[in-house]
Amino acid sequence: MTTAQTVLVTGGNRGIGYAIATEFKKAGHNVAITYRSGEPPAEFFAVKADVTDAASIDEAFKQVEAEFGPVEVLVANAGITKDTLLMRMSEEDFTSVLDTNLTGAFRVVKRATKGMLKLKRGRIILISSVVGLYGGVGQVNYSSSKAALVGMARSITRELGSRNITANVVAPGFIQTEMTDVLSDDLKKQYIDSIPAKRFAAPEEVAQVVRWLSSDEATYISGAVIPVDGGLGMGH
Rank of each mutant, 00 (worst) to 15 (best):
V150K: 08
D83Q: 07
R163G: 00
V7R: 02
F200M: 08
K82G: 05
T6L: 03
I221Q: 05
T100W: 05
A202Q: 15
S162Y: 06
K188R: 14
I165W: 06
V130W: 00
T100F: 06
A78D: 02
F45Q: 04
R154H: 04
Q208D: 04
D181N: 14
Q208M: 09
M152N: 05
M234L: 14
V73A: 05
E91M: 03
D99A: 13
A224P: 04
E72F: 01
S129L: 10
N77F: 13
R154W: 05
D93W: 06
D193V: 00
Q63F: 00
A55H: 09
T3V: 12
G15H: 11
G104C: 11
S145F: 07
P40F: 12
F45N: 02
V209P: 03
A112P: 09
V209M: 03
G104F: 13
K198E: 04
G17S: 07
F44Y: 14
Y142S: 06
K26R: 15
T3L: 12
S129R: 09
V182E: 14
D58W: 00
G122W: 11
P40A: 12
I57R: 01
F94G: 05
V206E: 03
A49F: 08
T84P: 00
S143I: 01
N101S: 05
V109Q: 03
R199Q: 12
A153D: 07
I124Q: 03
L85C: 00
E67D: 00
F61S: 01
V140P: 01
I124N: 01
G136T: 00
N164D: 15
G151H: 11
A197R: 09
A197S: 12
T100R: 09
R107Y: 12
A49V: 04
W212C: 02
F106S: 01
E59C: 00
G11S: 07
G223H: 10
V64R: 01
K62I: 00
N141Q: 06
S155F: 07
A218P: 10
G231L: 10
D83F: 13
K198R: 15
K26T: 15
V71C: 09
N101T: 08
I195V: 14
T166I: 07
I226N: 02
N30T: 04
T34D: 03
P172K: 06
F94Y: 15
Y134W: 14
A112K: 02
L102S: 05
F94K: 08
V31L: 03
G136A: 13
D53F: 10
L213T: 05
S215Q: 06
T3K: 14
A171P: 09
S128C: 07
V31M: 04
T157A: 15
L232H: 11
R107K: 15
V210P: 06
L126P: 10
G231A: 09
R199E: 05
V51A: 10
A21H: 09
G79Y: 13
H236M: 11
